[in-house]
Write a protein that binds this DNA or RNA. Sequence first.
DNA 1: CTAACGTACAACTATATGGTTGTAGATCAG
DNA 2: CTGATCTACAACCATATAGTTGTACGTTAG
Lengths: 113, 113
Amino acid sequence: MVVDQTLSDIEVDRIFRALADATRRDIVRRTLSAEASVSVLARDYDMSFAAVQKHVAMLEGAGLVTKHPRGRERIVRGNPEAIRRAQQLLNTYEQIWRGRIDRLDALLEENPG
Amino acid sequence: MVVDQTLSDIEVDRIFRALADATRRDIVRRTLSAEASVSVLARDYDMSFAAVQKHVAMLEGAGLVTKHPRGRERIVRGNPEAIRRAQQLLNTYEQIWRGRIDRLDALLEENPG
DNA sequence: CTAACGTACAACTATATGGTTGTAGATCAG
DNA sequence: CTGATCTACAACCATATAGTTGTACGTTAG
């Protein structure tokens, strides 16, 4: 199964926006390492449960984590796919920059000295 | 010269926040490819000059671009360093995920079937 | 059954963002 | 010198974020 890996502007916005908060990055890090319920996650942060819930919701909306019911709990898992898409974006930017360098080099070879 | 590549939470916040907008990503893309003045950049977007100015200011605050006076113009250049730091962040997340997979594999080998 | 737990969601506040218009200073062209 | 250009910045508005508290509901433990 080949999945369309083209991301709309809105989707990319959401991914980067979701990563622009230290608490959310920590949740991504933790849930990539091992899944955890929302309440277990919440214990480690100096804020209300509802606040953590909102962070998880934003991460879920960006596709960076998935939530799975287990009894009364909601298990949160990090999603490496979304990370990879963000990496791809940044890679294209680096490629663009390398392209510029290559063009500058070519220019220098044409007009040496 | 070795530069400290450790980023504070605030700095990382700013980088991802700056990347969470399609106009700003486009400015990064363009200025990585070739430097351009703020007004030249602004011509291509359906918003006021002041709005583009603010986007550039946010990118500059995040270190994603640098601004250089040239006469009455301000020349904007993309900064690949900041891109690389964001890439590094995402790479560590992927490493964390791979670490989990490795641990799962080891577990399966210990308890086969 | 009952109490505690985990979650969902609404309402509210404060601050940040993304846009606007307007004013003003510096520089360039003629 | 004068006018056009490029930029800077303030003030304002609408919306989104990040946090709070409070209420409600399903699930689990005893």
